[in-house]
């Protein structure tokens, strides 16, 4: 491990419990690199996670860490951030955790524009329970609960976040690590709700069922299918069908919830 990031890990908790070839470690690496570049105070930074493979990330990180209930990371994080706005709060969650059971908290955290940096590890599957389809599993893909191919359509999580009111939305992959680190930095700097969707790979429970090859092959798939907005513009509809845009997808200004509440407190204190 690079010496500059070692300090952010609970080394005694490693090695991690993720499968060989899993992309989650890459996301963690980018997260702590971003934190290092931002020079965040380790004592004033909180990691909140839900339940699932991605959510186990909090236990490996040397901060105040809160491993919560399934789907509820954003709701717990709202409590932490609203009670103590001076803390930096990151939310680490998977696609099942965030978009299925936690979907309601996701759209409302975005709507409220509370200053949380949310990183969604999107591996298109429930990994911890052994490979069931999630709201982010592409149509026709196989999972243990869609053995004949998924009949449902996946969310476009970024568009969902934008429609719900998020003020920063970005997407990267575990192949595009430099970009991912930069997006986390940008997301943190945004004073409001930030979503960073990370397209990551689950070779064990998604790749295997869908004949996607080795972990390296899955990374190459990310390289070949995640394209910049500019490149996407110039693609034909056929070419676009299996591509997705990576980079900053949305940025806007809106009042941040805890700051607005602080103003309210100042106005009505002692009345």
């Amino acid at each position: 491990m690079l010496p500059e990031i070692e300090q952010y890990f609970r080394l005694e908790k490693l090695p991690h419990m993720w499968c060989p070839g899993c992309g989650n470690g890459i996301v963690l690496h980018c997260l702590v690199k971003a934190i290092d570049k931002l020079c965040l105070d380790q004592d004033r930074t909180v990691m909140v996670s839900g339940i699932g493979c991605a959510a186990r990330a909090s236990g490996y990180l040397d901060f105040d860490t809160l491993h919560t209930t399934h789907g509820r990371a954003l709701a717990f994080a709202t409590g932490v951030k609203f009670a103590k706005p001076e803390l930096n709060v990151f939310v680490l969650t998977g696609d099942g955790d965030c978009t299925a059971i936690g979907g309601n908290h996701f759209i409302h955290a975005a709507r409220r524009n509370i200053n949380l940096t949310t990183i969604v590890f999107n591996n298109n599957i429930y990994g911890m329970t052994g490979g069931q389809y999630s709201p982010m599993t592409p149509n026709a893909c196989r999972a243990t609960t869609s053995p004949y191919g998924n009949l449902e359509r996946p969310f476009n999580l970024a568009e969902l976040a934008i429609a719900a009111g998020a003020t920063f939305v970005g997407r990267a992959t575990t192949y595009h690590t430099k970009q991912l680190t930069d997006l986390i930095i940008e997301g943190y700097k945004n004073n409001g709700f930030s979503l960073i969707e990370v397209v990551t790979h689950c070779p064990t429970s998604f790749g295997r069922h869908n004949k996607m090859g080795s972990p390296a092959d899955m990374l190459k798939w990310q390289r070949d299918h995640g394209v910049t907005a500019m490149r996407y513009e110039n693609l034909s509809p056929e070419e676009r069908s299996d591509k997705f845009i990576v980079g900053v997808l949305h940025r806007c200004e809106a009042p941040e919830y805890t700051a607005e509440y602080q103003k309210l407190q100042e106005k009505f204190r002692g009345r």
Partner: peptide
């Protein structure tokens, strides 16, 4: 807000219990 405290109406009952635990921490 008058006594320096915080009130939030959450999106559902589950979220309000979660926020309470987060705040207490």
């Amino acid at each position: 807000p008058q006594v320096g405290g915080k009130f939030i109406q959450m999106e559902d009952e589950i979220a309000s219990m979660a926020a309470v635990v987060g705040a207490s921490l």
